[in-house]
């Protein structure tokens, strides 16, 4: 298992776990970002990651990328 922050650009991974605290974990869930779902890293910018989950693009910071386990 590794974190999304360690992933490579243009790769699609299956989410294994989201280790954020409750409210953030729940919020990610409503976006379709939870264990078993797919996530694609689109690019790494300044200190943010652009990811694709369920046909939508999000910008997340490194901290959040580190708690999404793939």
């Amino acid at each position: 298992m590794m974190t999304l922050a360690q992933g490579t650009v243009n790769q699609t991974y299956v989410i294994r776990d989201v280790e954020a605290k409750d409210s953030m974990r729940d919020f990610l869930f409503t976006l379709g970002c939870y264990s078993g779902e797919k996530v694609t890293i689109i690019s790494k910018l300044a200190s943010n990651f652009i990811i694709n989950v369920k046909d939508a693009r999000y910008s997340i910071d490194e901290g959040l990328a580190r708690v999404i386990m793939i």
Binding site: M24, L31, A56, R57, Y58, S59, D61, G63, L64
Partner: peptide
Amino acid sequence: KESYFIMELPE
């Protein structure tokens, strides 16, 4: 220490 940021990027 932790302050997560997530934002949807519109096209």
